[in-house]
C-alpha cells in the first residue's frame, strides 16, 4: 500500500490520501445526482400533489395539505387494493412453482446446454411484453386452440371463458415476470456445491430430505430475490388486467393509470400511487427481515 502511494501520489503522501477519501464520492456523484433529481424529487412532488384539493378552474388543484385524501382513497379503493395484492401474491407463488424446477434443471441437469437455456429464459423479453400478452389473449380466446381442444375433450363447457377472467390476469402476471423469478433462483442454485448434496445422500437422506434440508435452505437468497422481483412489478401492473381481464378484475394500477391519463384527477392518482409504494415497501421490508437477508442490493 505504501509503495502504491509513493508511486502514484507524488511528493506529499497526504495528497494521495485525500484523493482516496474523495474518490468514492466522485464515483457516486453523477449517478446519485441523477437518482435524487429524477427519482427522489419526483416522489416528493408526488407526495405534495397527493394532499391537494380541486381548485376553482377545471383541472386546477390547490395545496391544502389535506391528509384526509389518504383515508378517502383507501376507503374508496379498498376492493382494488385487496384484489391487487391477492393477485400479485398468487401470481408470485405460481411463478415460483414454475421457475424452481426450471432453474434447478438448468443449474444441475443441463450440462453443456446451460448457457443456451439461460439465454432462452431471458429471450422472450425481446419479443415485446405487450405483444406476448395479446398473444395469450388470442390463444385463450373462445375460438383459440386451447379452448377448442378443451371443448373437444369435454373438459370445459362452451359458455365458460378463459380470457376476460381473474384466471387469465393471474396467469398473465405469472407469465410476464417469470424470468425475474428464474434468474435469481438459478444464480443461487448454481452457487451450491454439489458435494453438500452428495454428503446428504451419503448420510442416508433420501432425495426429498436432501432437498428439504440442504438444497432449499441454501437456495433461499434466490427465492427471496426472485419473489420480490416478481411481486413488485406484478403489484404495480395494469397491462395484464387491461388486456386479459374484465371490469371486475380491475387492479389498483388500472385505477391509477386512468386517474392520471383519462380523468386527470392528479391528487387522487398521486395519493393512490404513494399508498401503493408504501404498502409494497412495507411488505418487502417485513419479508426481507423475516427471511433473514440483510443485504438489500
Amino acid at each position: 500500500m505504501v509503495a502504491i502511494a509513493r508511486k502514484s501520489g507524488g511528493a506529499n503522501p497526504l495528497d494521495s490520501l485525500r484523493q482516496k477519501v474523495a474518490m468514492p464520492y466522485l464515483l457516486l456523484l453523477p449517478g446519485m445526482l441523477w437518482l435524487i433529481i429524477f427519482f427522489l424529487s419526483p416522489i416528493l412532488t408526488l407526495v405534495s400533489t397527493s394532499t391537494k384539493v380541486p381548485g376553482m378552474g377545471i383541472g386546477e388543484f390547490v395545496q391544502e395539505y389535506r391528509w384526509a385524501n389518504y383515508w378517502d382513497a383507501i376507503t374508496a379503493m379498498q376492493t382494488q387494493f385487496i384484489r391487487t395484492f391477492f393477485y400479485a401474491i398468487i401470481a408470485t407463488l405460481l411463478a415460483l412453482a414454475i421457475s424452481y424446477p426450471l432453474a434447478y434443471a438448468i443449474a444441475f441437469k443441463s450440462g453443456r446446454w446451460k448457457n443456451v437455456l439461460l439465454v432462452l429464459v431471458v429471450a422472450p423479453f425481446f419479443c415485446s411484453f405487450i405483444l406476448r400478452t395479446i398473444a395469450w389473449r388470442q390463444i385463450l380466446a373462445q375460438d383459440g386452440i386451447v379452448f377448442k381442444t378443451l371443448e373437444f375433450l369435454h373438459l370445459i363447457s362452451p359458455d365458460t371463458r378463459l380470457t376476460s377472467s381473474a384466471f387469465a390476469v393471474v396467469t398473465g402476471l405469472a407469465y410476464n415476470f417469470l424470468p425475474f423469478m428464474t434468474l435469481p433462483l438459478y444464480a443461487s442454485l448454481e452457487r451450491i456445491d454439489p458435494r453438500t448434496m452428495e454428503a446428504s445422500g451419503d448420510l442416508y437422506a433420501n432425495g426429498i430430505t436432501t432437498f428439504r434440508k440442504v438444497t432449499l435452505p441454501l437456495s433461499m437468497p434466490g427465492v427471496v430475490a426472485g419473489t420480490l422481483l416478481t411481486f413488485i412489478p406484478a403489484a404495480g401492473d395494469f397491462v395484464n388486467a387491461q388486456i386479459l381481464g374484465n371490469p371486475s378484475t380491475t387492479m389498483i394500477g388500472n385505477v391509477i393509470n386512468a386517474q392520471y391519463l383519462q380523468t386527470t384527477n392528479y391528487p387522487l392518482a398521486a395519493t393512490l400511487s404513494f399508498i401503493l409504494m408504501i404498502a409494497i415497501l412495507i411488505i418487502v421490508l417485513v419479508y426481507i427481515r423475516k427471511s433473514g437477508t440483510d443485504e438489500l442490493v
Partner: peptide, 19 residues
C-alpha cells in the same frame, strides 16, 4: 437510494416523474 427504485412499481416511477 439504489434499492428504492427497484422496490417501487414502474407505475409509481412513471407517474411521479410525469407529475
Amino acid at each position: 437510494l439504489i434499492f428504492l427504485p427497484m422496490a417501487t412499481p414502474e407505475l409509481v416511477l412513471g407517474a411521479s416523474l410525469l407529475t
